[in-house]
């Protein structure tokens, strides 16, 4: 029974993959943030929430390795009301939950839209992982990969799917570069070589600019999303 479909994929069941739903409303833009442990993903998410929450209706999904740590940090920092922050459990495999089996994350983004929507932007933060972790295109519309200068200035040269293909690469904690002997120029050259025209943001959340360049990048994504 039901084995012979004329049309193999009558509709997508990552259904919110389409920007406009059947009823004509537009779903939120979903931006994934991935990267190694300790590179500053949660701090960047918190800063983005503070920078954008006045102009955008936002929510966050966290994928902790041990559950709720990151969600609780965001709650403690009160960057968003608690009903706008959801935590997904990943069974010790954060990359599986954002790439190979996105079921739980899709449910989380859809529940947020149902419960507190309409939303303009949902940030999906991966649990800290390795350099090969990337998000499924069934889950997010754009992805940011966050590395930091203290993790070694050879990471851009090493490449890997996160560094090479992310829509935005953030090199975080640039204020630490002199203290850990990281060569920012070299990181920029290596990143350009790996990424071609894809953008790279050098960020220090303690500096005067803070998250502003990344927030601008998100704003541009939102503007492009609104006309799709």
């Amino acid at each position: 029974m039901h084995l012979d479909h004329g049309d193999s994929y009558p509709h997508r069941h990552t259904h919110s993959a389409e920007p406009v739903r059947a009823d004509g409303t537009r779903r939120a833009l979903r931006v994934g943030l991935g990267g190694p442990v300790g590179s500053g993903k949660t701090a960047t998410v918190a800063a983005l929430c503070r920078a954008l929450r006045a102009e955008l209706s936002m929510a966050v999904v966290t994928n902790d390795i041990y559950t709720r740590e990151d969600a609780e940090f965001l709650l403690r920092e009160a960057v968003l009301p608690p009903e706008r922050i959801a935590a997904v459990e990943t069974g010790a495999c954060p990359h599986t939950a954002i790439r190979d089996d996105i079921s739980a994350n899709l449910e989380a983004v859809e529940e947020l839209e149902e419960n507190v929507g309409p939303l303009d932007l949902i940030l999906v933060e991966s649990g800290g992982d390795n350099l090969t972790a990337t998000f499924s295109r069934g889950l997010v519309d754009a992805q940011i990969f966050v590395i930091d200068v203290a993790g070694g200035d050879d990471i851009p040269r090493k490449g890997g799917p996160g560094v090479t293909t992310a829509d935005l690469l953030i090199v975080n904690k640039t204020d630490l570069a002199p203290h850990v002997g990281s060569d920012l120029d070299r990181m920029a050259r290596d990143a350009a070589e790996q990424r071609g025209d894809l953008p790279v943001a050098f960020q220090s959340l303690r500096g005067p600019e803070g998250v502003a360049p990344v927030a601008d990048w998100v704003r541009a994504r939102i503007a492009a999303w609104a006309v799709r």
Binding site: V88, C93, A97, D101, I102, S103
Partner: peptide
């Protein structure tokens, strides 16, 4: 590997 969420349980 069937993507039905079981890996987290």
């Amino acid at each position: 590997r069937f993507p039905a969420g079981g890996h987290a349980h």
